[in-house]
Structures are given as C-alpha cells and as structure tokens.
Design a protein around this nucleic acid. Structure first.
Lengths: 236, 236
DNA sequence: TAGTGGTCTAGACCACTCT
DNA sequence: GAGTGGTCTAGACCACTAC
C-alpha cells in the first residue's frame, strides 16, 4: 500500500511546504480548497495532513485552520536555564501566562514526593508560548515549608531560579518521567487544540541536597513543538 | 463538540478494556463487528480506536487487527543496565534480533561525533521485542579505533557492557536527543506496523573520559511502548 | 478462500471563528 | 453571515493475513 494516494499527497504537500511562499504565508488553504486542487475528498486530504502533523511540519489551531510549524524548540528538562532564557537563546519569542495560584493538597504530588496525601502545596498553573503559539501547559506543586512566601512573587519567570535565589535551595535530586499522551480536555483547551491531540508529558520530582522534598511538576507539551535534549557527564 | 459520538465510544471501549475478559483475550473484535455493535460506521469507530491508540491502551499490528496494549516499559536511556536486564526486571520477556552488521561511513554519526564524513563505523542494526511484540528498531555506529574486534562478538546483549568490559571504555560524556516522529517505511516494516505510525526517536552521542568519540546510535520506539525515566544527582 | 484492516468516495450537518 | 474545521453516514474496492 505504499502507493496510497494520501501518501503521494503527503509527499507533494511536503515539497510545497519547503517553499515559504507556496501558500503565501504560514497558513494553509482551506481543506476544501486543497481537496479540490488535488482532486480528492476531504477525508483523504485529512489523512495526508495528519501525516504531516505527525511529522511536525504543520499543526492546527482548533477550528481555525492548518499552519506551517516552526522548527521544534530544544529543551533540556534537567536544567533550569529558565523558559524565557532558552527560548530567546534560540531566537524565538517567549511568553508566560499564570492561569492560577492556590494552596491545596494534590495526591500525585504527595505520592511522588513521599508525603501524606493531605499535605498542602503551593500550586501554580501556567501556560507558555513560543512566538505567540501556546505550546506548554504546566502545573507546579511546591512544598510550602521550602518556600513559605512563594505565592507572593511573580511567576512569569523561572521558578527554579526563585527557589535558588530566594530560599537558597539546591535542587540536588531530580527524577524525570517522559511519555507520549493525548491531551486532556483542559490542557487541550488551554493550548487551543482539539481534545485528544497528541502531547508529550514531562513530570519532575525534586528533592534538595538533604533529600527533603521540594517540588513536583507536570508539563504538557504539544508533542511536536519540542526536541528534548539532555547532556550528561560522568554519571556512569 | 465534547459530545461527539466517537468520544462516547472511546469512553465505553476504555471501560471494556479495563475488564481483561471483555473481549476474551488480548485481541479486539473486528472493526466491522465493533461498528455494528455500537451502531455506527467503521470511520467513526476508527476515530475512537485511534484515540485509544494515542492513549497507549491498544495498538495494531499491520492488517492483523487491534490488540490490548500492556503497560509501558520503563526505560532510562542514560543508563545501560542492558535491555535484557531491565525488561526482565519489570517482569517482561525480552528478545533481540540482529538484523545487520557491517562497516561503512555514516554521515549523521560522523557529524554527531565530530568526525570526517568518510569516517567508517562498525554498524549494528537490531530489533528488540518485549513479550514477543517488536517495540524498538535501532542502529548503532561505533568508532572502530575504540573497539577494533567489535563485529566478531555477539550483539543480542548490551553493547555498552561490551565496550566497558572488552575495551575498558568509560562512557563519560553523553548527549541525548528525544523527539516525536512518524516511523519511516523501514522501521515500520521491522516493527510490523503501518508506515507513518507514531514513534519516539532517541539519539545518543557518546564520548569517553578523554573526550574521544565512541559511539552514536538511533533508536526508534513505538511511541506508547515506553515511559522514559531519568534520575539525576547534583548536576545543578 | 474468507476475513481483516487500509484506503477512498461523495456527500451531509454542526459548532465555532472571523470580520 | 460566511467560511472553517470537526464529525458522521453508507457504502465500495484492495492488499494482506490466517487458515
């Protein structure tokens, strides 16, 4: 079946996408227009678009249309250069919106950090943009004893930077979990995509140098918006 | 559109999948059977199946049918416990097939390791199984000077173990890159899935303690077959 | 050879966005 | 209000797998 028409279509569209001027901008023509141009139906056309979406070449904004994707963002979840810093370092424009802050228990955080389930956490939920495209929805839960006045600060910047700078914490022990997921209703809405869109989940659990629990966070990325990089020395 | 029928269908199927006996085994009924049972068409049914596939609950084997997925494998690409070891440690059955060995130049490896493009490498391509399901296709390129007689050995086990044991190499400097991809024709065929299936690519570049280039490899995983975990100490 | 998933057609209506 | 993607129907044929 390698001669399926949608695969030919995928190839032709992929070529067109190489040429920045092919569609006169970042936006693709309407599905009906493309289907007619390539003499097929929307169903088949959408198979080709879905392929290109999986390859990270295009993406959709819910009910608005298809757009040419920029190159993925390089991201090292083991460091905290700060979102704003590393996005700028790659010549892109970062932006952060704080959606919510509160203090309450959260079972997954408690379990990850080995604390009782009724342990309250300082909780921050935010949404982050690259070049005005929402690519990341995240929630962070911080143990209040480690950072008492945390919620009085500003959270559009680096949280780890604050933990180090304001409370002198060393984020010594870190455990990461990454896996492919489909975005839930809330994350999808926050990122302006259809529910069920493919995502990449990153969870981090942090202890300080004295092995005291510090922080737990969950990130939900658009799955093709980033390339995870990790550099390691000597930890054989 | 959260009342789309395919989402209800997804929910109902997800519930059925909780019950191991619901379908009398690991295999789901034929699409036509399921479509009739839920009084819809194959197109809509397949939307629901695709959702569950994205969630990692089911997977398909090319043209054979849909199967209930086992839990994902935990995998730490920064360590080399050895595939066979960590799969067994999780109570699963590993298997490795060596598909090819040769010695030849490879541009991506040369570029990653900072060597001339005509630099030859010892090349090993293999396919790895968990519980008889092919989940990983990988190629490894080793600098011959680091491991001269490499290709005379056996490669169903841990390559890093050999590099350490037979040549006393320390894999001191490691750089990883992970990103979502769609599997190419070759990888898809080796893994028994349709071309364009979602995958997860892991690339590693390794230098020894004297910063001499040692190895470069590319892994292509079925994207929902694994959960990446990384544990770090002190590398603030 | 029977049954399966893979692909495709030619429509349709709806919810939402844009202006 | 016009245009968009999201969803859905009711079929069809083909390539491949399993027996």
């Amino acid at each position: 079946m390698s001669d399926a028409y949608y695969l030919h279509l995928t190839d032709r569209l992929r070529e067109l996408l190489q040429d920045p001027a092919a569609f006169g901008g970042d936006r693709l023509p309407a599905e009906r227009v493309l289907a007619e141009r390539f003499r097929t139906t929307r169903v088949t056309l959408r198979q080709a678009l879905a392929q290109l979406e999986g390859e990270g070449r295009i993406h959709r904004s819910n009910r608005r249309g298809w757009f040419v994707s920029p190159p993925p963002l390089d991201y090292d979840p083991t460091r905290d250069a700060g979102f704003n810093d590393y996005v700028k370092a790659q010549g892109r424009q970062p932006r952060t919106e704080v959606l919510l802050t509160d203090t309450r228990p959260h079972r997954p955080a408690a379990e990850a950090l080995g604390l009782p389930v009724d342990q309250p956490f300082h909780h921050i939920r935010r949404r982050r943009f690259v070049d005005d495209r929402a690519v990341l929805s995240e929630s962070l839960w911080v143990v209040p004893e480690r950072a008492p006045q945390l919620l009085e600060g500003d959270f559009t910047g680096s949280l780890w930077g604050q933990l180090r700078g304001r409370w002198g914490l060393t984020l010594a022990h870190r455990s990461l979990r990454l896996y492919s997921e489909t975005l839930g209703a809330q994350e999808a809405e926050e990122l302006g995509v259809a529910a069920g869109t493919a995502g990449l989940s990153v969870r981090r659990t942090i202890f300080d140098a004295r092995r005291r629990p510090v922080e737990y966070d969950e990130e939900h990325w658009l799955h093709n918006a980033l390339c995870i990089t990790v550099d390691l020395e000597n930890t054989a």
